[in-house]
Design a protein around this nucleic acid. Structure first.
Lengths: 210, 210
DNA sequence: TCTCCCCACCCCCAATTGGGGGTATGGCCA
DNA sequence: TGGCCATACCCCCAATTGGGGGTGGGGAGA
């Protein structure tokens, strides 16, 4: 028995909003639990509804759907946001993604595709219209400047230990996990500190993440 | 009458390679015109075939599929490359995209999905498995996960100390920097550990960055 | 052959850390 | 007015950490 996916809709066009809701509610596994015609209404009530997924139009009368997404995402980190719009310019796409959206559908998407995208989003995917996906992928291209691809010169074992450190494990736990003594782990840590030019586990982890 | 989409396959596993070719050729609109078991063979012959789409395994015997993609894309800018692999670590995904790939499928993708992805790629899309798309989207926002500092319920002073921790400072240095005694810093750290449900500085910093 | 490096282990020791107590001041607010 | 919390400080103590030494074995290269 699959869980019912709850959906909120933020869309200024009433016919479109209602039509979308009716279509969604005609499905077995997705329910539209709230709709809003503008950002103000959504910001006021949507956090209390906390749907799994929010469909967000970009063109709202009072504020941009991007700003609206940013604020709602801050209040509802667990909710997945899908932009649903006619705009497909790169600038807006990237702003939407940085604002916290995980999906980006064009309005010309067929109804079945919308439902499929909602399910995909809820499963942890990032549904995007083809055109959007291509723009996102292309944005990776003009950056051939790969900054420092692993130049710390750590041996495989040393890196393994660093990775466990970065997961929050204390040396004793690392020793247990790897089936070696704590003394060995300590030896490795000393070497790692030397190579990374740090003095503590914490600094090493920061270097690892930085 | 739709144009026939020509496909090249670079894949070291012979059964997989053959099976994929047969399956593709069973379709009406897609034809596999060449297959290669390794990067060397692909680099030598694929430019002469110039298929519309190339399915590229990442795990090749002689060189990485990423490097192979980079060179082939340089020779065939009009050809669309789709990575086809079991790897889904972020590092490889981004390397593949910067190398010129426009699609990224996991091998667990059902056959129908593979054909659909080939068509999508040829139409100008960027087909990706759900897991891949989500990773791409998430990495697109390097620092959006910052605006949630209140969630852990730290006081301003506690957060200030945590921030210094996250810069690699040791408690004694924090005391000096803030002009308070180390004992005070230690008291704060205990509170911070409690609130964040961690036991060490390192874990606290990981939480801070996570 | 003879290094060099990686892996694994051991000892010592000073310093630090984390956990447990505690005290005192001041602000907020009900 | 009393409670609650943030800030700031103190003590003790076991355990851990970081830095300094060292011992081997095994594999890759020169």
């Amino acid at each position: 028995m699959p869980e019912i996916i709850t959906v909120g809709i933020v869309e200024d066009s009433a016919p479109f909003r209602i039509g979308l809701r009716e279509f969604i509610n005609a499905s077995d596994d997705v329910r539209c639990v709230c709709t809003y015609p503008d950002g103000t209404a959504a910001l006021a009530d949507l956090p209390a509804q906390a749907p799994h997924v929010v469909l967000m139009d970009l063109q709202l009368p009072d504020c941009s759907g991007i700003e609206c997404t940013r604020r709602l995402k801050a209040a509802l980190p667990g909710t997945q946001f899908m932009i649903f719009t006619v705009h497909e310019d790169s600038e807006r796409i990237f702003q939407a993604l940085t604002a916290g959206a995980s999906g980006y559908l064009l309005k010309r998407t067929p109804p079945d595709g919308i439902l499929a995208a909602i399910r995909d989003l809820h499963r942890g995917g990032a549904p995007m219209s083809s055109e959007i996906a291509r723009k996102v992928v292309q944005h990776f291209r003009p950056q051939p400047a790969r900054p420092a691809p692993e130049s710390h010169g750590l041996s495989p074992r040393q890196e393994e230990i660093l990775k466990l450190l970065a997961q929050g494990h204390v040396p004793k736990e690392i020793a247990d996990k790897l089936g070696i003594t704590i003394e060995t782990v300590r030896s490795y840590l000393k070497l790692i500190y030397q190579k990374l030019h740090v003095r503590t586990r914490t600094e090493a982890v920061i270097k690892y993440f930085g």
